[in-house]
């Protein structure tokens, strides 16, 4: 167990939950605050991108919004002044956990929406394409996890190298510039992860239901 990572993940989770509950407590239809507007912008963006049956749209939007803010919080955690914690997304364990959760949710939703026969038919027909489809499905979580991990890990390496290669006063300027870039990159990576999640849902879940869904979220 990596306790630093768990602590950093826990703090990120607490920050997202606190921000979400703050949005809930102060939500207003007439005079929204900036935090609410940011959450609404992400939710609206995810909703406009999602192309699944309406019964499952809320699940897709919720997953994308949660992923976005959770990854932003995790990416920005080491940028806080004096923070001794690493970005939890720079560790493969968190990115694999997120990617695995997303893929499980995608397939669970696809199975609910299509039924067992429809789900199997979706992935196994035509038969001659089935190996490619299965390979594609197997690669998705790997690329999802490695992309986020690779970017954040490389970013951390750059910071570490700046500290090692340059004397402290000289390293300050590139370090500050890189920190600003990391702020931007943290949001971009979160956006990409959430966007890919929505696209995976779109590919797996039909836009029209042939039958009543088993469960709704």
């Amino acid at each position: 167990m990596n306790f630093d990572l768990l602590l950093a993940t826990g703090i990120s989770a607490a920050v997202v939950i606190a921000a979400g509950l703050l949005v809930r407590a102060t939500a207003s239809a007439t005079s929204p605050n900036p935090l609410q507007l940011a959450w609404e912008a992400v939710a609206d963006g995810a909703r406009s991108l999602s192309d699944v049956a309406p019964a499952y749209r809320d699940r897709v939007v919720t997953t994308a919004v949660t992923l976005f803010w959770f990854i932003v919080a995790a990416n920005w955690l080491p940028l806080l002044p004096g923070s001794p914690l690493p970005a939890p997304t720079a560790n493969i364990n968190l990115t694999v956990a997120l990617a695995a959760t997303v893929i499980v949710l995608v397939h669970m939703t696809a199975w609910q929406a299509r039924g067992t026969r429809g789900y199997l038919r979706h992935y196994l027909s035509p038969v001659w394409l089935a190996p490619v489809r299965l390979l594609d499905e197997a690669i998705k979580p790997v690329t999802l996890a490695l992309r986020l991990f690779g970017v954040l890990f490389a970013s951390g390496l750059v910071v570490a190298m700046l500290g090692v290669l340059l004397p402290a006063p000289v390293a300050l300027i590139p370090h500050a510039a890189w920190t600003l870039f990391e702020l931007f990159m943290g949001v971009v990576q979160a956006f990409i992860f959430a966007l890919l999640t929505v696209l995976y849902f779109n590919a797996a879940v039909p836009t029209q239901l042939a039958r009543t869904p088993d469960r709704r979220t």
């Binding site: 167990m1 990596n2 990572l5 768990l6 993940t9 826990g10 989770a13 997202v16 939950i17 979400g20 509950l21 919720t62 997953t63 919004v65 949660t66 959770f70 939890p88 560790n91 364990n93 968190l94 694999v96 956990a97 997120l98 695995a100 959760t101």
Partner: peptide, 16 residues
């Protein structure tokens, strides 16, 4: 650690 991380994310997802 991955399992704990996944559990933490699922808790956040549930709350949200």
């Amino acid at each position: 650690t991955t399992l704990v991380e996944a559990a933490v994310f699922l808790i956040v997802l549930f709350v949200i």
